[in-house]
Simulated assay, not measured.
Amino acid sequence: MTQRFAIHPSDPQPRLIRQALKVIEAGGVIAAPTDSCYALVARLDDKDAADRIRRIRDIEERRHLTLLCRDLSEISTYAQVDNKQYRLLKATTPGAYTFILEATREVPRRLSHPSRKTIGIRVPDHPVMLALLEEAGQGLLSSSLLLAGDEQPLNDPDEICDRLKGQLDLVIDSGACSGRGTTVVDLSGPSPVLIREGSGPLGPLGLG
């Protein structure tokens, strides 16, 4: 059965945040709001939950899942960041950007790209998601809630409940998000490469 919690978008109730994290820690997959769109979220080291996310989204194992971090300093736990990359990350986080970076050994091998050893990382700018991350005390695994055949990620909690009833353990209802995915930038090479333009402006990246 899919639970549904109504959590205030700017002042999330700590009790409900703790309950939502318990669902994640028990191996659950939840839908939660971010500053770009709703996302599927699970525990970082939970292979079964990662497989469920891929099945829900109908994506292959080689596709990146994204690691959500609380802040800029936490990124360095999971990704190798040089000075140039750090300056760009500092200018754009928190925000609606996903960065492809070289993974550290803290990232389970199955979650990094099998041939390139990279991982997608972002710091979301949404009080509910940041509260979840703070309560977790570590990164959380995520993927935009973009279903096969759809052009835009799911944005409305009612639609998420209707279309994914029984496939999710919890839907956090904090109202609609922007509905667009993140801007994705590959930083694993000598210079930034735009993979997808989304909610995050290109100006701070020097790509606009």
Rank of each mutant, 00 (worst) to 15 (best):
R109W: 01
R110L: 07
L111T: 04
L111H: 04
S112Y: 00
S112F: 00
H113R: 09
H113A: 09
S115E: 13
R116V: 00
K117L: 12
K117V: 06
I121Y: 00
R122V: 01
R122P: 01
R122Y: 06
V123K: 09
D125K: 05
V128F: 06
M129G: 03
L130A: 09
L130T: 10
G137P: 08
Q138E: 15
Q138T: 15
L141C: 13
S142K: 04
L145A: 03
L145P: 03
L145W: 02
L146V: 01
A148P: 00
D150F: 12
D150A: 12
E151F: 00
L154Y: 09
D156V: 02
P157W: 11
D158M: 02
E159F: 00
I160C: 02
C161W: 02
C161F: 02
R163F: 07
L164C: 05
G166L: 01
L168Y: 02
D169A: 08
D169I: 01
D169G: 14
L170E: 05
I172G: 05
D173L: 01
G175K: 07
A176N: 14
A176Q: 13
S178H: 14
G179H: 13
R180Q: 15
G181F: 10
T182I: 03
V185L: 10
L187V: 09
L187C: 10
L187K: 10
S188K: 07
G189H: 07
P190V: 07
P190G: 08
